[in-house]
Design a protein around this nucleic acid. Structure first.
Lengths: 219, 219
DNA sequence: ATATTTTTTTAGACTTATCTAAATTATACT
DNA sequence: AGTATAATTTAGATAAGTCTAAAAAAATAT
């Protein structure tokens, strides 16, 4: 049985290695968790002793099979709870992260499975992230980062890669929601900002620092 | 903001003082929480420093107004989560206590209120215990302990005062559920055990150690 | 290829939450 | 009332999780 802190470190390693397959550095984990690098080093030793990660001094860490499984379960719980909060308790997508951070540590296999059933086995959470099934399988789909679309392209918004409250509130302002259609009216070479139409009505300029955090399915 | 352990101690004090209004002893808390008395002493000092309890060495402790409020909120959360687990996730009443023990520590006012609304503001949990409302008010009702009924009496089962899995499983066996009618066919002077009819069909002998944990509303 | 900078680890300290054993205080019983 | 017993507290220890400052290793830049 893991402590909350151990679980958080596992999840951080999982998250960081999603992007780049190389070993995860102490500093990156510390940054992800807002802790001192020294604390991370301690924890890496502990997780290594429990065989949840492979860790060599100064060489970073990566998850073992077992560690990966545990981290995946945490992600599953986190995303199921987020879905619950939005779908059943009417939270908005910018409010749920912090609460799900707590709920994901509740220990009960049965609870997770019942929750999954109650939600009707959702495959994506309110931010468009895939929810691993009970066997740890993620549903894959072809997605493009909005900033890679060109003038004339049209897509459907299917996810975001930044879950910060402030970022999501801004998206609300722009009418950006999952499932909405977005068309690129023009793209400005100056800074790669986009002029887009979202849904039926709204037209906006979206700077790259926003568009790079939005996933679309090309229409 | 309290730690989980602080919250558990508050809740224990609350629970013990429900029955008997006198100050709560170190030993009773230790027994309730399965810890050493020395650990409780430490915690009492801490809670006292935070003004959540009144504590005098060797004289036991009782909740302050503020402590009572926090403890009541914990009870509220615990019972709401139990209700959620039974009503929405189809857990049985003997499975929910341990999970609710974890869920009650989730910190989010909004979550509690949304959950309450989602459940349609239940006033009693799956064990028949009253759920305090957002202001800490409990719904009172006249209840009798089953062992106090006499031959010929009839009542409706409205609660239990023991939440142990094994106890509740035994009640299931006896067809004891909330809302069911129970009639006292006879009462044996030897040990105060009762011969009862439960619901339509079942007839059983119920020993006092069981009947003393069942609440009924007299019909 | 050496020096500078950055990253990581070690060392040592602190807090919380526990424990056991010993000392102290309160209670209960002749 | 005085003593035996029970309850409580104190003292001292341990483990987890965190920190800062210093030391060591690795990466980078001239």
């Amino acid at each position: 049985m893991l402590t909350v802190s151990e679980e958080n470190h596992l999840k951080a390693i999982f998250k960081i290695s999603e992007r780049n397959g190389t070993p995860v550095s102490t500093n990156k984990i510390a940054h992800e968790l807002n802790t001192a690098a020294a604390s991370v080093t301690d924890m890496l030793k502990r997780l290594s002793a429990k065989k949840l990660i492979k860790y060599e001094k100064y060489q970073g860490a990566h998850l073992t099979e077992q560690g990966n499984q545990l981290a995946t379960r945490l992600v599953r719980k986190h995303r199921l709870w987020e879905t619950f909060l939005v779908e059943k308790l009417e939270f908005s997508w910018d409010e749920v992260h912090q609460i799900a951070e707590q709920l994901e540590h509740i220990q009960s296999e049965t609870l997770t499975e019942r929750l999954d059933a109650f939600l009707d086995y959702p495959r994506f959470d309110p931010h468009g992230d895939p929810i691993p099934d009970r066997n740890g399988k993620f549903t894959l789909r072809k997605q493009h980062v909005l900033d890679s679309l060109e003038q004339g392209d049209t897509g459907i918004i299917i996810g975001v890669s930044n879950h910060d409250t402030d970022f999501l509130k801004l998206l609300d302002e722009l009418q950006v929601k999952l499932g909405v259609t977005i068309s690129i009216l023009s793209k400005f070479d100056y800074d790669d900002s986009l002029k887009v139409r979202i849904g039926e009505s709204a037209e906006h300029i979206i700077p790259k620092n926003i568009s790079k955090n939005i996933y679309v399915k090309k229409a």
